[in-house]
């Protein structure tokens, strides 16, 4: 679901980038007002969760791969606004350092995975949960359904963004300039594998980690009034997930819509890659596809996970240090 550069037209990229600015501003204001310094540090851990979950690729029907995002999970723990910021920062690091998702398409990726996913997921969660005093079974069901629907709607948004490109941007001969797949292809290609596998993985991961955090560190949750707020158990879980990331390499193939420019002509059955894609912007990532020249894939994958987690922890801890003292006591 990480849209690479040149699949969307620059105009589309610009629209989503501009659309995200007020969303980020609102989320930053809300997070700055509501979260204390400890919860801000936990937000870094939550962003690390999201970063790691996106590294766990699972095989999808049709020979492609997919992954969970963890946006609803962060939304349930710290609020959808915090989730928006956390997933945005994780996506930024993925795009800049690892070339996972486009630089120009950063706004679109954030719109799908950092905005739609957590906000829809949390809204569905609240709807299913009902009022106060719900049983733990109902809470788990609500978390599963919320995260499932959140990821499904985000995948639908990405499919629509792909699918409208050939309608809006064509050359004089009528050939697509960017993503060549129309809506009739992009929607089923994205939705069927996501509904069957990726959304289920998202739901299971959300329920498991949400329940774990509620049990070991309930004080970290945004609306918590008491309970442990130790970051240690959460850090241990992040460490275990980081070591297990090479499992994501077991899924072979490329996610739908994430093929390189050199692959797209063959995959789409075209004589040549669409002009806008072939001549588009190209970002030289430092560790493209979480790989390093000469280093075994599994080692490079773990190294990437460690760099990503540590970067997120440093960024969010520094951000937490700017939280006003009156809120830093929790």
């Amino acid at each position: 679901m990480h849209i690479p550069d040149n699949y969307l037209s620059p105009q589309t990229d610009a629209v989503f980038a501009v659309a995200m600015v007020p969303i980020w501003a609102h989320c930053a204001r809300k997070v700055g007002k509501e979260l204390n310094a400890r919860q801000m540090s936990f937000l870094g851990m939550a962003a690390a969760f999201s970063f790691l979950l996106m590294m766990f690729n699972v095989p999808l029907p049709g020979g492609t791969t997919g992954h969970a995002v963890g946006g609803t999970l962060i939304g349930l723990l710290l609020g959808p606004e915090a989730a928006c910021l956390a997933v945005s920062v994780a996506l930024g690091i993925q795009a800049l350092i690892f070339g996972d998702g486009g630089i120009l398409a950063f706004g679109a990726n954030c719109f799908n995975m950092a905005f739609i996913l957590p906000f829809v997921g949390c809204a569905v969660y609240r709807l299913v949960l009902g009022g106060e005093g719900a049983s733990s079974g109902r809470r788990m069901a609500a978390a599963f359904i919320g995260s499932y629907v959140g990821l499904a709607v985000a995948a639908l948004a990405a499919a629509i963004e792909f699918g409208v490109q050939p309608l809006l941007f064509k050359d004089a001969a009528g050939a697509a300039l960017y993503c060549p797949y129309p809506l009739s292809v992009s929607i089923p290609a994205m939705m069927i594998p996501h509904l069957l596998v990726a959304c289920v993985v998202e739901g299971v991961a959300t329920v498991a980690i949400h329940e774990y955090v509620l049990r070991v560190a309930p004080g970290l949750v945004a609306d918590a009034e008491s309970g442990s707020s130790s970051l240690v158990p959460v850090a241990v879980l992040v460490g275990v997930l980081a070591i297990a990331t090479p499992l994501g390499l077991l899924a072979e193939g490329t996610a739908w819509g994430e093929w390189g420019t050199d692959e797209i002509a063959e995959v789409a059955g075209l004589a040549q890659a669409p002009a806008g894609m072939a001549n588009g912007f190209e970002w030289q990532a430092i560790m493209p596809d979480y790989a390093l020249a000469g280093l075994p894939d599994a080692a490079a994958y773990i190294l990437s996970a460690v760099i990503g987690i540590a970067l997120l922890a440093v960024i969010f801890r520094l951000a937490a240090s700017f939280a006003p003292a009156r809120r830093s006591g929790a």
Binding site: M287, L292, A293, L295, A300, L303, V306, I307, A310, V314
Partner: peptide
């Protein structure tokens, strides 16, 4: 690759 390993350790 060596520098990235050290970079990860420093981070």
């Amino acid at each position: 690759a060596f520098v990235w390993v050290v970079f990860a350790a420093v981070l």
